[in-house]
């Protein structure tokens, strides 16, 4: 099958228009979950169908696309989505965060600070932060509408009561512009501060759940906490990256043998590689 068999960026224009309308509404109401009519995509749910649709709706031929999965450009999900768009949109791709105009991500925000004009597209499995506290979707919608967020706080209370601290390490709930409570997708809470006042446009797509939400540039995003148990972004304690030596980045644990050997390396492969390159230059 030739590339010309597809419309630009796979989706037909009417679908992209529907998506863009949802995106515009989401940008207009930061943190609010906008329903959209999610399409079947040529990949299974859970592999980024929501993110792919949002990316498809945003791409223009001049864009440079970067795709990361858990911070890495070279993992299966990232490689396949990148090649998907190379094939159906013919856009340029890159692994360099600074050079990308659109970045689709699963579970991370790049370490390199984003700049104005960039779009960061998150893949979201469960958009509803109240999901496991209140099972009725009708009720959670009312709770959002009425800013009835005591329950969200109860979840954090339970953490402290049980573990002595807020144990939630990823998908840590945030409040957007003092109004909507939002699930930032399963990014580590280490990345939460990057959501706040970001110069880039941040878009969130949940394909299976048919929801889109957004953070326009320079949106105030606060992580929920208690006055006496303030939010702390955490990383693996006392470790530096074994490859580039970075001390301030989010690290993955890599098991190196079957005798307990392990190392900690940057989860953001572009960030790590760039640092190694700069050091050797």
């Amino acid at each position: 099958m030739t590339d010309q068999a597809y419309n630009f960026a796979y989706l037909d224009e009417a679908t992209k228009r529907m998506l863009r309308r949802a995106l515009l509404k989401a940008v207009a109401i930061p943190g609010y979950q906008v329903p959209f009519s999610s399409r079947e995509m040529p990949m299974p749910y859970g592999w980024g169908t929501g993110g792919v649709q949002v990316t498809a709706a945003c791409l223009v031929p001049e864009d440079t696309l970067k795709v990361i999965d858990q911070g890495a450009d070279d993992t299966t999900n990232a490689v396949s989505i990148r090649s998907f768009f190379e094939k159906v949109a013919g856009v340029a791709t890159t692994e360099a965060t600074a050079e990308a105009s659109v970045i689709q991500t699963r579970h991370r925000i790049p370490e390199t600070p984003l700049h104005a004009g960039q779009i960061l597209v998150f893949q979201v499995p469960i958009p509803e932060p109240l999901r496991f506290l209140e099972p009725r979707e009708t009720e959670t919608r009312v709770m959002h509408a009425l800013e009835d967020y005591g329950l969200m706080q109860v979840r954090l209370y339970e953490d402290i009561a049980r573990h002595g601290e807020i144990a939630r390490a990823y998908a840590y709930p945030v409040k957007v512009e003092g109004r909507y409570v939002m699930d930032p997708s399963p990014i580590p809470k280490f990345d939460n501060p990057k959501l706040n006042m970001s110069p880039a446009l941040q878009l969130f797509g949940a394909g299976r759940e048919c929801r889109i939400y957004a953070l326009p540039p320079f949106t105030r995003v606060e992580s929920l906490d208690f006055e006496d148990y303030p939010f702390t972004p955490s990383k693996a304690a006392g470790q530096d990256c074994a490859i580039c030596g970075a001390s301030g980045s989010y690290l993955d644990e890599v098991i190196t043998d079957d005798a307990g050997g392990r190392m900690f390396v940057c989860s953001d492969t572009d960030y790590c590689a760039t640092r190694v390159q700069e050091a050797s230059a």
Binding site: D148, Y149, G150, L151, Q153, V154, Y157, E158, I160, A161, R162, D225, F226, E227, D228, Y229
Partner: peptide, 18 residues
């Protein structure tokens, strides 16, 4: 938890000190 159940109403009206 029982404590969380009692605390919920406080948190629902804005209490934020654990």
């Amino acid at each position: 938890s029982a404590g969380g159940n009692v605390g919920e109403r406080l948190m629902a009206v804005g209490a934020r000190h654990y």
